[in-house]
């Protein structure tokens, strides 16, 4: 299944809760302020890295770019555009939005 997260981990627990419920083989897409969870060298980076072996973690590139943080994205996070978002949703049902 696909999980979307649109909250910064500094603000809410959506990312933490999502990662606790993501099963092996699931895909997590970070969108809107959720892309802050895709960044390297933050206090949440280790939590995200720990899941990267079993869960595919993606981030919406236009949201990273808009926030000026593209160059800080953690290596191994797959960047997608809106077309890629649609593909992920089509290929990985059901979809849960961690709001």
């Amino acid at each position: 299944m696909l999980h979307t997260v649109n909250k910064s981990p500094f603000e809410r627990n959506a990312l933490k809760s999502c990662l606790e419920h993501a099963r092996d083989g699931d895909v997590v897409l970070l969108i809107e302020d959720g892309v802050i969870g895709a960044l390297d060298n933050t206090e949440f980076t280790a939590m995200v890295k720990a899941k990267m072996g079993t869960v595919k973690i993606c981030a919406l590139a236009p949201d990273l770019e808009a926030r000026g943080v593209s160059s800080k994205a953690l290596a191994g996070i797959e960047l997608v555009d809106f077309g890629g978002f649609v593909d992920l949703a089509a290929e990985n049902g059901p979809v849960q939005a961690w709001l």
Partner: peptide
Amino acid sequence: NEGPYQHQAADTAYLFTRSALEKGH
């Protein structure tokens, strides 16, 4: 679930919709 301008949700929903239509969904 959110109004326009205050929150990005309406923009994301719109851009997702446009891309899905472009892809033939």
